[in-house]
Amino acid sequence: MAKPRGTVYRTFSALKKDPLGMTGFVLVSIILLLTVLAPWLAPYDPLEVNVYNRLSSPSAEHWLGTDQLGRDVLSRVLFGGQVALKVSLVAISVSMAIGLILGMMAGFGPRWLDRILVISFDTVRSFPTIMFALAIVALTGPSLNTVIGVIIITSIPVYARVVRTQTQALRERDFILAERAMGASTSRILRDHVLPNIAAPLFILASMDVPAVVGMEAGLSFLGLGVSPPTPSWGSILNDGYSYLRNSPWPIIAGGLPLIAVTLGFTFFGESLRDIFDPKLRRKDQ
C-alpha cells in the first residue's frame, strides 16, 4: 500500500499525464501571471492618449499597435485582464458561496423549502442574461459593479442546482446516517461531511465558469453596459476596434485573442480536473 499523499500532489501528477489538461494549466498560469503583473509589464500607461500615433500597426514601440486615440493596445489588453480577473474572482466566489448555502438548504432541508428554492432558481434562469443585464443597467446605469451584480444573480442558480443534487445524493448515504446515529447535528453534517464531498465538483464548475463570466463581462462592456471609458476591458477594446475595423484589424485581434486563450485554458484545465476527480475514472488506474 503506497503512502497516502496530499490531494495537491496527486492532482498535479495526474495532470502531468494529460497533455490537454497541462496545456490548459499552462495557459491559465500565463494569463494569471500577465494579468497580476500588468502594472509592471505594461510598457505604457493604458490611458495615455497620443493622437499623432493613431491606429498604428505593431511596431517595436507598440507591439500590438495603437487604438483610435493612439493608446498602446498591449497595455490596454494587460490592464483589461485585470478587469476580467476582478469580475470573475468576485462574481464567482460570491455566487458560489450563496449558491452553496441555498443549494444545501434545498438539498438537505424540508421538501417545501426545496420546492420554493427550485422555483426561484428556475425563474432567475428563465430570463435571457443579456436582457436581464439591459434591464438592470437601465435602472442603475452602466458600471463594473452592475456587471458583477448581474453575473452573481444569474450564476447563483447554476451553483445552487449542482450543490442541491449532490447534497440530495449524499443525504441518503450510509455514512451520513451513521453520523446522525452518532449524534452529529445537521450543521455539523453539512459542514464536515457534505461540504468536503461536494468541494471538488464545485471547484471544477467554477473553473469551467471562468470563461463564461469573462465572456459575459466582455459582452456587456462591448455593448457599453459594463466598464465606463476610458477604463480598458477586453470588451471595450473590441468595441473600440470594431468601429475602426476598416482602418486597422489589430485592436480586434488583440482584444479577441485573450478571450480565446481564457476560454480554451480554463475549459481544458476544468475538464482535466473533472477527469482527475471523477472517482469512477480514477479507480481504473489504481
Binding site: D174, F175, L177, A178, H193, N197
Partner: peptide
C-alpha cells in the same frame, strides 16, 4: 452499521 464500505465518509 451493516456495511463498513459505505458507513465511513470517503473523502476524510
Amino acid at each position: 452499521f451493516q456495511d463498513p464500505m459505505t458507513s465511513l465518509n470517503p473523502v476524510l
